[in-house]
Write a protein that binds this DNA or RNA. Structure first.
Lengths: 232, 232, 232, 232
DNA sequence: AATGAATGAGTGTTCATTCAT
DNA sequence: TATGAATGAACACTCATTCAT
């Protein structure tokens, strides 16, 4: 999962590689997110992660590698945490709403890092870019799956599931991308709630609507839902 | 409109300033869009626009200025061309659909430049960034206005107009941002058409639905609509 | 005197050359004095003197020319004004003291420009530097002449007249060079008065001392002497 | 003493910083002295000191830093070597004359660098300029102390000690500043000897004169005095 | 005679990367 | 494995000078 795929290291002990890379990437993601890829220097990453410059080059081939794995780290969070949050949630409508809620709250936790994926994917070498796009597609499929179950279960009328899922994903990303415009008008919970009204509800069948109503009764519009994402 | 506001030039003749700046920005937008802000050098811009390095600094204070005016140029296109396309369009539903169509086709024409606004706005100096965000807000209001008329005219049921408009805008931007994922599945016309189905149709009242149906009869699902934006 | 010697102009009318050069040099001396030769740009000189950049190159060959004539202008002031102030002064001791007073007050009026001669003479092309040094020598001879008359007249005992004169000149220059250290402790009049005590008085014969005493009685220690240099 | 105060280095090992800075400053002082601050490029300093351009920026913040430490180096020489030469010299008159001799011979050894302090102090950032002026004041106090002892010991009649000392300092600096005019007329030893006659002797009391005469008998007018400054 | 737009070599400075220790 | 001093190509930006008008 935390795949070192495509990125070679001069260090042999895989456990050490794992560990050190995590430390360095942690600092890199923070710095890239705050200041951007080109503005962040290797020196800064070295200082922030408490290792020497030379060591960074033992664990990463070059700066592009660090960016790649930084972006991968963010996308892996989506891919890992959304399913984790869906665990135990059975009803398709519940699953879709929970997925939206989960995605938005992860984006909220990683706000700057989420923006980074938009800012810096193009700075990646072409082959790496494709890998990142593949990872994004995979996350989209998570959402698309939820949508499909809703449709298949008769809770939602037929839609272009691919595009529908993409809209949902964009909506979640927007919480980071356009936070400057949104934060004055919505809390995260309100944002998710409005998102459901805007994107999900209109497509629900009678059966689906009933499910959503039941869900709302239980969760008071998601408002009491504790943030399950560990804040960073 | 093509506002040189906030950016001073060493050259006095305003006509010449207008002209040269346009030439240089033209090259800059292209290069920034293709390769990114930091990767693009002033040398490259100079060569691509056929002027000397020194001359660029007679028309722009520094590289940040060039980025700012490049982004402004793109946003100004939205702000100018969407109203132009709406001219003569009367019916609120028609206006909303036309706005979506117009926005998407402008984004299509400026594909890389539209991505640039997401990639590089954060590279701007903070005060400049605010100006760009203001310009984005203004374009959003164009869409929001269309939505409001639909609601006020009873063609659409009540919605959070701000968020609705933002969803529409994101959808249009997505055509550029996620073109790598969308182009295999949709032509531009199909994309717009699906967008209407996904974002507009579900909210229309009976009256609104009738209007949309009439509209579709006339325009054959937008599919025959010629691209009215001058390609760049 | 205001010699355009060694500096060619593209403009033929000598009166115009005289006039324009004066305007430009006026600005140049001020800017060079305040900010230094290398920091001052031709653009700044053009703006400050109210002429175009191109015109400057009609009246001066290059930037070095402007520096040369700027320095020459300052040295010419010494050479012109010191004799002017000595006019009508007969007694050798009086002449020497008046020369010191005159030199110091010119330096005071041209404070920054006087510093410029120390800062920037070395920036001149070698052949030009020699010309400036010649001009300095000429001013020194003015002082040396006064010293010689004192000695010849029996008012002063024998000294190395050349070195004595140089000490006097340095003392006058120091008012500009070390103004940061001197201005808190002396007014200009006090400085000159102390200078006479330090450099002249110890060398006076009895006859010389009497002359100085008479002089002081008349001029109240120079303290009431009005500044005869037109401030610039 | 060789104070790196106010200038930070990216390199941690203080011994290495000391060493490298010395190498680089050595080249910088030479180049600045010969060609001036603005004409000297970092490239030249790098080449002359045998290090890379980048390395210079590991040891100095910017070019201004290099100038500051260059000037400081020169002033530190005065401050260190004059007291060193005075060590063991007891008699006040002897001390004053020795100080003059020492100062002049240091100036002689650092001829161009001494000129640099006059040429380039104003090129320094304002806060740095003040530090340099403070250093100059400190050296002046060295001379002033000698003068004071002469007066206190009854070897010299009362004078403005501050100004007297300044005259002495100017005289020493003049050996560098006006070397083009002086070298044809005086050897260094003659210059110092004449300086004593011009500045010191006239103020000596009978007691002071006797001391000077004794001194001269011992040192044969300073003429045999070996240059104790290591030439650079 | 006068203008000022245009030029581009040259500057200080940065920073990814290497490599001796 | 780990360090961080050392490198130098590459960058943004400046400014003396030219020249068409």
């Amino acid at each position: 999962m935390r795949s070192p795929e495509h990125v070679a290291s001069a260090v042999s002990d895989p456990k050490l590689v794992e560990e050190r890379r995590a430390e360095i990437l942690d600092a890199a993601v923070r710095l890239f997110s705050e200041n951007g890829y080109y503005v962040t220097t290797i020196q800064q990453i070295a200082k922030a992660s408490g290792v020497s410059i030379g060591l960074i080059y033992q664990y990463f081939g070059d700066k592009d590698d660090i960016l790649f794995l930084s972006l991968k780290l963010v996308l892996d969070r989506y891919e890992t945490e959304i399913p984790a949050r869906l665990e135990g949630v059975e009803h398709p409508v519940d699953r879709l709403c929970t997925a939206i809620w989960a995605y938005c709250s992860i984006v909220d936790a990683l706000r700057h890092a989420a923006v980074l994926t938009y800012r810096s994917t193009k700075s990646l070498r072409a082959d790496r870019r494709t890998l990142i796009q593949d990872a994004e597609r995979k996350t989209n499929l998570l959402i698309e799956g939820c949508v499909h179950q809703c449709v298949a279960g008769g809770y939602m009328r037929e839609v272009d599931e691919f595009l529908f899922a993409y809209q949902v994903v964009l909506f979640c990303h927007a919480w980071a991308l356009k936070n400057w415009a949104l934060r004055d008008r919505f809390s995260l919970a309100e944002y998710v709630s409005e998102g459901v009204k805007l994107m999900v509800e209109p497509f629900l069948t009678a059966k689906g609507k009933a499910a959503l109503a039941a869900l709302r009764r239980r969760s008071h519009d998601f408002r009491d839902e504790p943030a399950r994402t560990a804040p960073r």
